[in-house]
């Protein structure tokens, strides 16, 4: 099985440690992982802002780069969701092979590898951040709106970590207010949503907020720091490789 590692642009630039953890984790599981160096961005920021036409060449580039792999794995739920749910539409009438085999790291570990044990330890209380596109586009957990059996793939994986205490905030899958350019166009609402979310995470008594999407974490961290609120943020991939 050959894995193409997709490290989305903002993770590349701002959270390289998340990419490194993902790479180490996949390698520790004995997988053949490659990182196509000409990769950049999936196009989501432009698409959500209303400039899909600018995202189309990026979708095309993405497909050319990643089509040869058996799976494309990304440590960022909303980027994986954009590729899987939006690229087929963007590339209608063109080759689009990579989208269908692009997965977020959590679902890859949970659904494809069926990981049931990990030799890692993280003796801390963490509050899980269920990112919207992870929940409602990828199905990483059951959306709170739906009457479906309850599950949470992120929590399933975190439970494999020794010493960890896992909890969820009240309103467990309400949006944190990032939303790409939403955060700057609707800055007041976005900041308020972020603050409300951070406070709910803090109310769990957790030391860390963790999630599958660094963009939500980046937003909440910025809000928390601005407000002087004390809680740490860490990507799921970093916990799953803790001490590896």
């Amino acid at each position: 099985m050959k894995i193409g590692l997709f490290v989305p642009c903002y993770v590349d630039a701002l959270y390289p440690e998340v990419g490194v953890s993902t790479w180490r984790l996949l390698r520790s599981l004995g997988l053949d992982v490659d990182y196509p160096e000409r990769q950049t961005c999936c196009g989501q920021p432009m698409g959500n802002a209303g400039f899909e036409r600018l995202a189309r060449p990026l979708a095309r580039r993405f497909d050319q780069l990643f089509a040869p792999y058996d799976y494309v794995v990304a440590p960022s739920a909303s980027c994986a969701a954009y590729v899987r749910c939006f690229h087929p539409d963007l590339l209608r009438g063109e080759a689009c092979e990579a989208a269908g085999k692009t997965l977020d790291l959590v679902e890859f570990l949970h659904d494809v590898l069926h990981v049931t044990s990990l030799p890692v330890r993280f003796p801390h209380k963490v509050s899980v951040h269920n990112s919207c596109h992870g929940v409602r586009e990828l199905g990483l957990s059951s959306p709170s709106e739906r009457n479906v059996p309850r599950y949470n793939k992120i929590i399933d994986l975190l439970r494999l970590v020794k010493g960890i205490e896992v909890c969820e905030p009240e309103r467990p899958d309400e949006c944190c207010g990032f939303g790409g350019m939403f955060a700057v166009e609707e800055q007041a609402v976005s900041a308020r949503m972020g603050l409300d979310k951070v406070r709910r995470h803090i109310a769990t008594g957790a030391e860390y907020v963790t999630g599958p999407d660094s963009s939500c974490l980046m937003h909440m961290q910025g809000v928390a720091q601005k407000q002087g609120l004390d809680i740490k943020f860490i990507h799921v991939a970093e916990i799953l490789t803790s001490g590896l």
Partner: peptide, 27 residues
């Protein structure tokens, strides 16, 4: 507009792109 509700982002010394070759060499 980012700094309305957030502190400014801090960029790490090396992007993942830059760390990648190092990772491969380590291996």
């Amino acid at each position: 507009p980012w700094t309305y509700g957030h502190t400014m982002l801090k960029f790490p010394r090396k992007s993942f792109h830059e760390q990648w070759k190092q990772l491969k060499n380590e291996e």
